[in-house]
Design a protein around this nucleic acid. Structure first.
Length: 424
RNA sequence: GCGAUCGUAGCUCAGUUGGUUAGAGCGCCGGUUUGUGGUACCGGAGGUCGGGGAUUCGAGCUCCCUCGGUCGCCCCA
C-alpha cells in the first residue's frame, strides 16, 4: 500500500465476504420478523440538530458530553451524527404529526456514530436495528416488543442469550430509589472505587452493576427498586412479566439492570449471553446484544406532549458475531471462454444472461490467459462448468460441460436452449 | 480519558544473542508438464520491515516519540 493512500477512519470498518453476508443476514431476518409483527419501516436522517440528542439523552450523560460527533455546518448550526435512534425517531414523530398513527409501531436500521475507543464489538460507526412502539402506555406493548426481540434472536439461530428484565418504576419511584441509593452509598463513599465515587454524583444507579471488587460488598444490601415502586408501577411490571410468560419468552429478573440514558422509565431490559456460553465468548467484554426499555418521558423533553413509548435497539455487528460466518451465494454455472474471439465472448455472455434470467447464478471467466480460464472456473467452486472453444477454422464448438448429473439436469435447459440458438 | 499488547510482501506468518543483496506458504502473472483439463514443476512481479528520531562500525531485531490495529477499563448496542 502506498503511504499516501488515506487510511480508514479509526473505529470504522470495511466488511467483506462471509462477514458481510452475516451482516446482511441479520438485517434481512430483522426485516422479515418486523413484518410478522406489523412494524412499519421508517427512515430518518443520519444527522440532527445537536439539541435533539442533548435534550433527550441528558446533557450529563457520557454519550452527550464526550461521545458525539458534533460539528457546525456552513450555516452555523450545531449538528450531530446520530449516536442512537430513539431521539431522532421521537423528533420525527413530533415534527411529522405521526401522532395520527398512534400507537405507531416503527422499525429501522442503519449506522450510528459514537466517539469511543474501538474494541471487540464496538466501533465508532456501528449499526443497529431498532424497533419502537410510540403512543402505547399499556404493558402489552412492552410484551409485544420483547416477544419480537426474542423471536428475532431465535430466527437468527442465536442461543445462550437470555432476557434480563427490570423495572425502574415511574418517575417518582425512580427518583425515590435514586435518592435512597445516594444516601446509602454516600455513607460508605470512602470505601467505594474511584469510578463509583464519581458515579455517585453522575449516575448512582450505575454503581449497582460495578465490576470493582471494592464495591461488591455494598451491593447486596443496597436499596431495592421494589421497595420504592408505586402500586401502579408494580402492577405494570407484573403485567409485563405475566405477558412474557404467556408469550413463552424466558426472562430473569435483574435488579441491578439500569439504563444509561435519562429518558427511561418502567421496563428496562437487555438480552445478555449466559455466562460461559459460546455467545459470551464471541462477544468478549460487550455483554449486551439487544437492549431497551420504556421511555415515557422522552417526548416531553423535546417539547412534545406526554407520550408513552417503548423501544429497543440491537447492534448488528454483535448479532453478526453470534450468527457466525455465513457463506456467500454459491456459483451454479461457471462459463469458461477458451479463446479471445468476439464470437466466444458473445457466446459466453449470452449463456450467462440466459442462466441468470432463469434464476441461476452464473459467472463468465474470460480474463487472464485463455489456458487457465478453465482452471479458474474449476476453482470457483461452480456446480456446473461450461467451456466454449473454437475449432482450428474459427468455428464455435458446442460447449463442453462438467458437473454432477443432478446439477447438469437442473441447469440443463439453459444449456440446451443455448445450443438450439447456436445451431440457428 | 486510562491500561495492556501488537505493527515484516495483497493475505497468514518466519526472521536465531543486532552483522553480507529480508524469507516461506497462499494469492497474483507467465511458462512447462499432464491432457479432458481442479495436478506437478519452473520462473516473475510485489517489501524504504507503520512513521520519525536516538544508540552503534552496522538495527527488522535495543531505546524514545508518534500513528495505527487488537483487547480491556470507563461508558454503552
Amino acid at each position: 500500500m502506498s503511504k499516501n493512500t488515506p487510511k480508514a477512519i479509526r473505529g470504522t470498518q470495511d466488511i467483506f465476504g462471509a462477514d458481510a453476508e452475516a451482516f446482511a443476514f441479520v438485517v434481512e431476518t430483522f426485516e422479515r420478523v418486523r413484518r410478522l409483527y406489523r412494524f412499519r419501516r421508517i427512515e430518518m436522517p443520519v444527522f440532527e440538530k445537536t439539541e435533539v440528542f442533548a435534550r433527550s439523552l441528558g446533557e450529563t450523560t457520557d454519550v452527550v458530553s464526550k461521545e458525539m460527533y458534533s460539528f457546525e455546518d456552513r450555516g452555523g448550526d450545531s449538528l450531530t451524527l446520530r449516536p442512537e435512534f430513539t431521539a431522532g425517531i421521537a423528533r420525527a414523530y413530533l415534527t411529522n404529526g405521526w401522532q395520527q398513527h398512534a400507537p405507531l409501531k416503527a422499525a429501522t436500521h442503519g449506522p450510528l456514530f459514537r466517539y469511543e475507543r474501538p474494541q471487540k464489538g464496538r466501533y465508532r460507526q456501528f449499526h443497529q436495528i431498532d424497533a419502537e412502539i410510540i403512543g402505547a402506555a399499556e404493558p402489552q406493548a412492552d410484551v409485544e416488543l420483547l416477544a419480537m426481540a426474542d423471536q428475532l434472536l431465535k430466527e437468527l439461530g442465536i442461543e445462550g442469550v437470555t432476557l434480563h428484565l427490570n423495572t425502574l418504576g415511574d418517575g417518582t419511584s425512580r427518583e425515590a430509589w435514586r435518592a435512597a441509593l445516594i444516601d446509602y452509598f454516600s455513607a460508605v463513599k470512602d470505601q467505594l472505587s474511584e469510578d463509583s465515587q464519581e458515579r455517585l454524583e453522575k449516575n448512582p444507579l450505575r454503581i449497582l452493576d460495578s465490576k470493582d471488587g471494592r464495591d461488591k460488598p455494598f451491593l447486596a444490601d443496597a436499596p431495592k427498586i421494589d421497595d420504592f415502586l408505586s402500586d401502579k408501577a408494580r402492577a405494570f411490571f407484573k403485567a409485563v412479566t405475566d405477558g412474557l410468560d404467556a408469550a413463552g419468552v424466558k426472562w430473569v429478573r435483574a435488579e441491578a439492570l439500569v439504563r444509561g440514558l435519562d429518558y427511561y422509565r418502567h421496563t428496562a431490559f437487555e438480552f445478555i449471553p449466559d455466562e460461559g456460553s459460546a455467545a459470551a465468548d464471541a462477544l468478549g467484554a460487550q455483554s449486551t446484544v439487544l437492549g431497551g426499555g420504556r421511555y415515557d418521558g422522552l417526548m416531553e423533553s423535546l417539547g412534545g406532549p406526554a407520550t408513552p413509548a417503548v423501544g429497543w435497539a440491537a447492534g448488528i455487528e454483535r448479532l453478526a458475531m453470534l450468527v457466525g460466518e455465513r457463506p456467500e451465494s454459491e456459483l451454479e454455472l461457471a462459463i469458461a471462454i477458451e479463446g479471445d474471439s468476439e464470437q466466444l465472448f458473445a457466446a459466453g455472455v449470452r449463456t450467462a444472461m440466459m442462466a441468470r434470467s432463469e434464476g441461476i447464478t452464473a459467472e463468465v471467466f474470460a480474463a487472464g490467459s485463455p489456458r487457465k480460464r478453465f482452471d479458474k472456473a474449476v476453482k470457483s467452486g461452480a456446480k456446473v462448468i461450461m467451456a466454449y472453444s473454437e475449432d482450428p477454422d474459427g468455428k464455435l464448438e458446442s460447449p463442453r460441460t462438467k458437473g454432477d448429473e443432478a446439477d447438469l439436469e437442473r441447469i440443463g435447459h439453459v444449456l440446451r436452449e443455448f445450443a438450439l440458438k447456436l445451431s440457428n
